[in-house]
Design a protein around this nucleic acid. Structure first.
Lengths: 229, 229
DNA sequence: ATTGGCACCTTACATCGTAAGGTAACCATA
DNA sequence: TATGGTTACCTTACGATGTAAGGTGCCAAT
């Protein structure tokens, strides 16, 4: 039939692109084989001619994200060429973070993957190179990698997601709850009161603002600088 | 019937205990309603009289783990009473880590939960108290909490799980693969060669040894000490 | 014209969480 | 002692999911 011919013939790339678009728009749970197939105007089983299965699909997503990160980090390093190790790494990590902000599902997917994506090896190799260039020993470079943890990939390990925006009726309930909380959790409520910016820019994870991200980064960078001996 | 009467009558507590035992033994994916019911000598739907559903069950697991952490951290703080903030927090975090080592599934579950478990508020309140007692401002205490991230709950955000122990035939394949890797990833392979302890104690996450955990902790502690002004 | 393979589809199954409703034992009350 | 309600468990069934097995139409090459 003619209609079949007119649409381009479905491929791993097209499937992955559609999957990313779908997940960007509706979140990871929306990504089912049937749904993705429908998005491509195709039946579910047709996907299996281009992808090895659901796990393979997720692997493809991860691979794509890592690719984006490597590209962005590479550009960042290029513009910071000649700078010291801190600014170069900082550029990499912030570039990675920008990618994660485009794909809020990525941190969760990344950290739930059972196997380590091939692409990250290359990415980590670049980080190690920068550290060595900055005068670090292999030992410290190794420990630095561990210390960076998920920061290197652009997201703070926020243990919990941001609270979903509640309904309108929650307001008074929240107030009484807050009052009850105040006596059970005096220090926390005092801190929230003093640092009342919980509502502003709840971007990626709970209260994970750019500021907090960079603060942690500098804390680690400073510590490493002193650990270099 | 007599047999029904002889076994104790199933409760939320018994269900949760069985769930934890099951997950400790066989991992999170083994935890299905039918399987858990079978473990308790009961049909799946019977669980719904004591639990609000699968999500509620997982919430229960999280709650239990947080409870363990709070208890262990409380004991640690008690023995370190009078010490400075670093040793007190260190005690808390290492106690939490011990809990996580008993329940390797916990980090993944924790960070995949959509809602923030009630128990952590209390736990965080204690951390803030210790920080304030150590002379930190609310601002720095807040940032410290962010900087600690998952360390406060006892696990480094290892982005990827440890590689499963491969079969015997993997050895030669791994060698050729390593050779191929060496030219593509010179710095990483050099680092691995220099730091050849990847195989030893792969406890929680990839290469997340006690040493690395404590190194990061001290990096952050030192940085915070200097950030206090 | 025949053939073979590629790309897509149809059907079907196991497994999952869980809604709806049944049933047996217990327990307080009349 | 008979009765009605509650509790705790079971049976059945449904929709969603990933995917195995095999069918079908088209095209290119022989």
């Amino acid at each position: 039939m003619r209609a079949r011919k007119s649409r381009e013939p479905l491929s791993r790339e097209r499937a992955l692109a559609a999957a990313i678009a779908l997940v960007d728009a509706e979140g990871l749970p929306a990504l089912t084989m049937r749904r993705l197939a429908a998005e491509l105007g195709v039946e579910a089983m047709s996907l299996y001619y281009h992808l090895p299965g659901k796990e393979g699909l997720l692997d493809g997503l991860v691979e794509a994200v890592i690719g984006e990160i490597e590209a962005a980090a590479g550009r960042a390093e290029a513009t910071a060429a000649g700078g010291d190790w801190r600014t170069r790494l900082r550029g990499r990590f912030l570039a990675a973070r920008a990618v994660m902000l485009r794909h809020p599902w990525a941190p969760g997917l990344l950290s739930s993957r059972p196997t380590i994506p091939a692409g990250v090896y290359g990415y980590y190799d670049g980080i190690i190179a920068t550290l060595l260039d900055g005068g670090f020993s292999y030992r410290i470079a190794h420990r630095a990698l561990h210390a960076f943890g998920s920061l290197a990939l652009g997201f703070a390990q926020e243990v919990f997601r941001p609270a979903a925006a509640g309904g309108a009726t929650d307001v008074e309930a929240a107030e009484t709850e807050l009052a009850a909380m105040a006596e059970a959790l005096p220090h926390l409520t005092a801190m929230v009161a003093a640092e009342a910016h919980a509502a502003e820019d709840p971007t990626l994870g709970w209260c994970d603002s750019q500021t907090e991200f960079e603060f942690t980064l500098d804390l680690l960078f400073d510590g490493l600088e002193r650990a270099r001996e």
